[in-house]
Design a protein around this nucleic acid. Structure first.
Lengths: 291, 291
DNA sequence: CGTCATTGGTGCAAAATCGTTCCAAAGAAG
DNA sequence: CTTCTTTGGAACGATTTTGCACCAATGACG
């Protein structure tokens, strides 16, 4: 018995009496319980005897059940301890981050964070109204920037990569002369984006400020667009317009105020975000999985 | 964390500091430790932080390490308890069984039994001198018999099946007229065995009393022979002489004296033997694995 | 006494886990 | 500063584990 999980098996079988019931308790099937018990008893000797009404522990089995019961109370005490620890970092955090990242990159992760830390109330603020971060009410900020921002501390992750996309069907059914661009509003356009694109002669049909609205229009086949890899690559209806590698844009930063940095609650969130982002690094860099 | 074995992982990592060392402690590789820790921390939050000299537990990690330490002492106490229980059934058992079964069927199992119950000294007696079991010094007896034996109690398992065999090379290279039988001594022969055999006209070259000696001669290609399936089937150099199903011989019994039957030590051994035999039932019945 | 439900076991295919082999990064040693 | 060792992670193939669909055996119930 070099697998402590076997104690859980013993406990479930002792309590429920039958393999099928024990399997349900453990979230398994009766075959798995049967096989695991078989190897366990081969290694440690008979633990249960099959009687007319279920499995009954032998002397040895009973000894191990007692161990398992104590282990269970330990485990439950550990869970309580964990909740108590989480209480110590209870409070509210306001997180400000770009709408696109919130919706397309970190949505599930942020939900997971709230489940992992029930004592933390997380408020997500996706508007860009707070351009001046010092005056912002946010505690933690995710933003793209070239330089380390003043008065804020944190870590730089990696650049956000973009390239050119279109809806596959739109691209195949639209005559080349009819292709149109969906662009940001003029002041937000990257210099040279059109000239370096695969279709520099196509006209700009519309300028949309909101990045997710632009993405929706792109997915619906309303035109060509330059967009973030992490938004477009997972969308199966979209194809890249060029085989050239995506281009890096601004670096992504995870930031907070210097006087909040040592706050455990803040540290936990920033660490969590950094970890979640790194897990998606290849997606943000636009590295296609099997290409 | 619905797998208590993860506590072992935490403990090993906390003690050794690096994944590679922890992996060695656990008998695994560092990749496995790394992956398991990753999913664990995804589910329960950060438990360790990577510092310049190894992994250091966070507050949460430390709480779980304490749980794991207590679990470990529980597990060790359980192992001591098991040894103590085994002491209660300490003593000597003399087991009498046919030489063929001892050598070809239960050898590993009996060894395993002594490891499982170090407090029991098992003496194996394979001679057939004790034909009268009441006068035998054996505590437990395995024997073949048609009827439930007098003055002894226990359980009947299943019949021992036999059929006809030869060394494959011997069969292919020997002219049919040169084929010879290796038989038991005349008084031990089953009536009609020769007439019902595939080669009823082949002469009997030799009569050997000892069953294992007969088997060895058969394997060495010294002739045809009728023998137990559980001895011959696992031997790759032997082939069956007939496609007819093997014939049942005497039932196999596991027996003891009535006044010993309730002795825990005896019960443990008899239960173990019955279980081991049932695991090999298809082998004894001569049911070929992939035929 | 027959029917039906429940139990645990078997064979096979799918899935998760693991080990091997590689590699980049970071410290330690020279 | 360079070299070398040690660390942990990634990709891939192999093994193990697991679930599913059956089945025989046993007991419950009408």
């Amino acid at each position: 018995m070099d697998d402590w999980d076997n104690y859980r098996l013993i406990l479930a079988l002792a309590r429920s009496g039958t393999m099928r019931a024990a399997a349900i308790d453990l979230g398994l099937t009766h075959t798995t319980v049967s096989r695991r018990l078989a190897v366990l008893q081969d290694a440690r000797g008979r633990l249960f005897e099959k009687t007319t009404d279920g499995y009954v522990a032998t002397a040895l089995g009973y000894a191990l059940i007692e161990v398992a019961e104590k282990m269970e109370s330990l485990s439950l005490a550990g869970a309580r301890h964990q909740r108590a620890l989480d209480q110590e970092i209870a409070g509210t955090i306001t997180l400000s981050l770009p709408e696109a990242i919130a919706q397309y990159l970190l949505l599930e992760d942020l939900l997971e964070f709230t489940q992992l830390h029930p004592s933390i109330e997380l408020r997500v603020e996706t508007s860009y109204r707070f351009v001046d971060l010092d005056r912002s009410e946010a505690d933690v900020v995710i933003r793209g920037a070239q330089e380390p921002p003043d008065h804020l501390v944190g870590q730089r992750l990696f650049p956000n990569f973009v390239t050119y996309y279109a809806n596959k069907e739109y691209l195949e059914t639209t005559p080349r002369s009819e292709l149109r661009w969906i662009a940001p509003t003029p002041e937000a356009r990257t210099p040279g984006w059109l000239e370096n694109s695969p279709f520099p002669d196509a006209p700009i049909a519309i300028g949309i400020d909101d990045i997710t609205a632009r993405h929706r229009a792109l997915v619906k086949g309303m035109g060509l667009s330059r967009g973030a890899c992490f938004m477009a690559d997972p969308e199966p209806s979209l194809v890249r317009l060029t085989s050239k590698p995506p281009e890096p844009q601004q670096d992504i930063w995870v930031l907070t105020h210097p006087d909040l940095r040592q706050t455990p609650r803040i540290r936990v969130l920033m660490d969590f975000i950094a970890r979640a982002m790194r897990d998606k690094k290849s997606l943000v860099l636009g590295q296609l999985p099997a290409a």
